[in-house]
Design a binder for these strands. Structure first.
Lengths: 151, 151
DNA sequence: CATAAAAACTAGTAAAACGATAGGCTTAGT
DNA sequence: ACTAAGCCTATCGTTTTACTAGTTTTTATG
């Protein structure tokens, strides 16, 4: 399961991506809109800033805004940055590979073979889904339900 | 990341599946062979028994053995039983679905759309991979490396 | 029937992770 | 100078993780 922190991070980024202008958004505004505890969100945004996805402006009229285009930020990057590796086993992680201490031969580890497939499938999806993709998917879905409603 | 408990469970089941006869195996033997803390393994085997995958025999010459055929036990079942749902979000779980408290419209949740795909991909793999599949994959891999070695 | 070897059961525990919260510090418009 | 914002460090209660300890029950065997 994803942690709250990661979920909040993605929700916040999607919300920021949704606004057309790149003007600063108050933490408190974002917190309220997305029902995220304000102080917790503060830390999360700081992390996302350190990851290069957001910029911020201090002082009056300050706030947070996307530093990259929505199409440049993938869900995979967000999850990796906040939650950690996508892989379910350290020994199949692309970004944080670590050998199992007691594994005599990685090539012959059944667990590894299976969970390597899972990791590949997961990263194929998450690394190819950007904030923009998410937005358009939601919009399409919205139009469809709207259409259904009008039949 | 999978917990140690889940990893141990899968390793133990693979080890038990590997023996041709269904004779009882001592916890201590299994623990040593797979380098799993004995007392911890004890609890895990108890869980797997409760899940119907293992049987046990008490007293002298007792031990654990598979109750089902290796092809009847999938990695998905094991992970779900020990770790919990495969899904990364409660709201896309097949086995433990739960609505997000603050979600105005599930159909229009971007997170949900993306992580539903991830869950589908994951369960497609894990629910279609049995202990038998794992064993044969390892054997094939073994023969391949062996072949490479002899060139 | 006594013994010993095994699983079954009940508790407990240290360390880490999770999900926040508190409060002071710094920066920048007006 | 004032004030509204983000920045930074610390802390906290709870839950989960990964075990460990000790006792009880079952069962084959001498």
């Amino acid at each position: 399961m994803l942690s709250m922190k990661t979920r909040y991070a993605i929700k916040a980024l999607i919300a920021l991506a949704r606004k057309s202008e790149r003007t600063p958004v108050l933490i408190s505004a974002l917190a309220e809109q997305e029902s995220i505890p304000k102080k917790f969100l503060e830390l999360i945004l700081l992390d996302l800033k350190a990851m290069g996805m957001l910029s911020s402006k201090q002082g009056k009229h300050g706030g947070y805004f996307l530093r990259l285009e929505p199409k440049q930020i993938t869900i995979g990057q967000i999850v990796r940055g906040i939650e950690g590796p996508l892989a379910l086993l350290q020994c199949v992680s692309q970004t944080r590979y670590e050998r199992c201490s007691d594994c005599p031969d990685e090539k012959l580890c059944g667990l590894r073979l299976v969970f390597k497939d899972v990791r590949d499938a997961t990263s194929k999806i998450l690394d190819n889904t950007s904030l923009e993709d998410v937005m358009t998917r939601v919009d399409v879905e919205g139009r469809n339900t709207d259409l259904m409603f009008h039949i």
